[in-house]
Nucleic acid binder design. Structure first.
Lengths: 204, 204
DNA sequence: GTCTATACGCAGATAGAC
DNA sequence: GTCTATCTGCGTATAGAC
């Protein structure tokens, strides 16, 4: 629709929408073409196959958030500000891209190997789990937080942040929330999660 | 393979596996037929269409765990034992059916309406969120726990329990865990989550 | 009930004109 | 670069024999 974008850009945007909503196997090239305002033939002209187009979208999605996480993990002095920074950044990002979380989950289970490769083999840094583990270990040693398995803590953080975005459509129905009400729920959730995590780490 | 099952039973089992792993759009009738040890034609003889077969699997899955949740939510006197009971039951169930969590998430986003209908319109009880809300409100009023939005707490519980099962393949790679190591992680996680939740609810 | 053979449509991909 | 027209294969579904 918007004219001052190249065709390639419009295809990428359309493909992202369709792949995110429907997944690899559910997505239709016709659907992507329609949303980009072109025809199927032109899709194949720009990207040789559905597989290739998908891979580009997929890579791009992964690489759009890995660096952000990396930055937070490595640039914070203490675990408290790390948690705060991560929760805020991560939830904001998931909120900006409604289907991202479900898309990633689906892809992890559909093709974990390609996911793993995309995360490492990318030009950017590899997944920064080690930086996180070291920070936690350091804080435990210093007696700033209670002893905890860093991987459990990591799962806490991820699970608490990601859940509302995975089940959003259903939660809205169960809770009978309108869009603004759900947004409000998410805003409150940020502080709620941060508080929960930090208070649970208090020593002794 | 196992002989003392009816053909219909074998189809259901096979279909469950395939639909869980691949999702509705990724599943192939040929694949289901192969795993059931029959041919495609017989699939259509028992279940008229892929759509119908999927819906049966889907309904069955939903109804297999709703009653369990219902029981826990309504039969526990205090929030502490509710949390303990829920976390244990829920994680055990997700562990028993490796792809269940991802399947549900995918379906929530693919077709939330049918999900909602399957949850209510079922012969069994509707989703027991109200029982949960009332229990939390009661405990808050009694001063047994700090004030908290019941829906936030519900999201905490769900997110903490479900996350490892959604990302299992990827987590195993990131953590470099073998199967037994991951199982051990899950066992530890139960107590970790229970402790985290209960301690976070302490009043004042 | 179970099979083989086949119909049918759709989605991915290509050819070729403009 | 963009289109129309077309090919090809695959996946769902049916027909009909046994």
């Amino acid at each position: 629709m918007t004219v001052d974008q190249t065709t390639e850009e419009r295809i990428i945007i359309a493909a992202k929408q369709v792949f995110f909503e429907k997944g690899m196997s559910g997505a239709r090239m016709q659907d992507i073409a329609d949303r980009a305002g072109i025809n199927k033939a032109l899709l194949h002209y720009y990207f040789r196959s559905k597989e290739k187009l998908f891979f580009i979208i997929f890579q791009e999605s992964i690489q759009s958030f890995l660096p952000q996480i990396q930055t937070i993990f490595s640039n914070t002095p203490d675990i408290g500000s790390m948690i705060r920074g991560f929760v805020q950044t991560y939830m904001a990002m998931l909120n900006r891209q409604p289907y991202l979380a479900a898309f990633i989950v689906q892809e992890i289970n559909r093709n974990p190997k390609s996911m793993w490769e995309a995360m490492n083999h990318t030009g950017s840094a590899p997944f920064p789990i080690h930086a996180f583990q070291e920070l936690v270990a350091k804080e435990v040693d210093a007696g700033n937080i209670r002893p905890i398995d860093p991987l459990q803590l990591w799962a806490h953080i991820m699970g608490l942040c990601i859940f509302p975005f995975l089940g959003r459509p259903l939660m809205k129905m169960i809770f009978q929330y309108s869009d603004p009400q759900f947004d409000h729920f998410l805003v409150e959730r940020q502080e709620e999660v941060i508080h929960l995590l930090i208070s649970s780490l208090k020593p002794e």
